[in-house]
Design a binder for these strands. Structure first.
Lengths: 207, 207
DNA sequence: GGACTGACAAAAGTCAACATCTGTCAGTCG
DNA sequence: CGACTGACAGATGTTGACTTTTGTCAGTCC
């Protein structure tokens, strides 16, 4: 019987499964090793610490959030509509993770609370995706922005309530979607979009 | 020797002092009673539970946040400048509490995490103060807003990162003030303010 | 007679003995 | 030789007996 070689990749898969099963509070390195049929010392040959292993699992998991978003950010269509879809997708992905993968989501929430580097990189990725959409929008003449990078951060910060896992418990509140729509309106104006998308708007009489 | 009557007011003062000293984790009803020289049974004559007592202490404490803000909200000057001062004051008050009154601030953070009614009332108060400033601004022709109440909530939500105690640990981050400025710019635009306040801006060439 | 006490039950919290886990490394095995 | 093991020390968690706290209420005292 040919044993498959022990690789970082296989450890990550096993670790993710163990985290999913037992959650961040109960999952141990011994559990991961047991799932792989090796001693836990072997795991430490590939990852310097349990923390590093957890970060690496989270990194893969976060990539599965930021990749679909990157695709939307890279599209060609009108930027305002694209920004809206991007934000909707971010909310949807986060909420889906919180719902379908509660233990991994709890792991991620811990990382956020611990201000781990892997989280900093993730939010930088997201903010720069927004910046990219905003820059496209400026080129299209749809947005009036001085500094798309700064504005990208501003959009990310202003919508924190709707994607930061620290606020996850509020996502199922009755008014949450309405609250998002309110902030979205603010954003549209703040980005220099003059046309109100839905029903036609009267031209302002003054000025 | 005339003993002063035991009133809810005196209990609240003692409870606040006990909470300030020992923090939410260590303060007990017996401590509060001891500070007043009575049995803890007497305290339960005035408050139905420890939770109710804690909420009442927080309510007083929150009033000391919302009252100075209400004064700013009620002023007569130009609304955009007033909104800015209101937000600055909110940030300053919250940060001051976190710094100078860490135990009471921790008590409040717990209440927020528990989604207590007293917190809901507090944020409703704040959101309506914003709405009032916005309504003034619309009357002055400084803001272009359809629904000041909805916009008040949106401003409150979009700035959550800068006043919600759940984010308190980020308030001392290096970029936090810059992040606030970014969101503030977004807000100004989102509220329909066309003039950029600081250095003169060229008139837009298109449209 | 109503504010207050103090004794009490149930709930929650503490703490130290015990158990498990993390991280290391000398040594085995293929 | 080098991936892997297993035994180990120190750190961290768990357990369960014990203590404190919460909340109640019959009874006292002015």
């Amino acid at each position: 019987m040919v044993e498959e070689a022990l690789t970082a990749e296989r450890i990550l898969e096993a670790a993710e499964e163990v985290l999913r099963r037992f959650g961040p509070a109960k999952a141990t390195v011994v559990d991961v090793a047991r799932a792989l049929g090796v001693s836990h010392g072997s795991v430490y040959r590939h990852f310097p610490s349990k923390t590093a292993l957890r970060d690496a699992v989270a990194e893969r998991w976060l990539a599965r959030v930021s990749h679909p978003l990157a695709e939307v950010a890279a599209e060609k269509g009108p930027a305002p509509e694209r920004l809206r879809r991007w934000l909707d997708l971010l909310r949807e992905l986060k909420r889906k993770k919180a719902r379908d993968d509660p233990e991994l989501f709890a792991t991620y929430s811990n990382l956020v609370a611990d201000a781990r580097d892997v989280v900093r990189v993730h939010v930088e990725t997201l903010a720069s995706q927004i910046a990219r959409i905003l820059a496209d929008g400026v080129e299209q003449g749809a947005f009036t922005i001085e500094d798309p990078v700064a504005a990208g951060w501003a959009v990310f910060n202003a919508t924190a309530k709707f994607h930061n896992p620290i606020h996850a418990s509020e996502w199922s509140d009755p008014g949450n979607d309405a609250a998002f729509e309110g902030v979205w309106s603010l954003l549209l104006g703040g980005l220099g979009v003059r046309e109100v998308p839905a029903k036609a708007r009267k031209k302002p009489s003054k000025k």
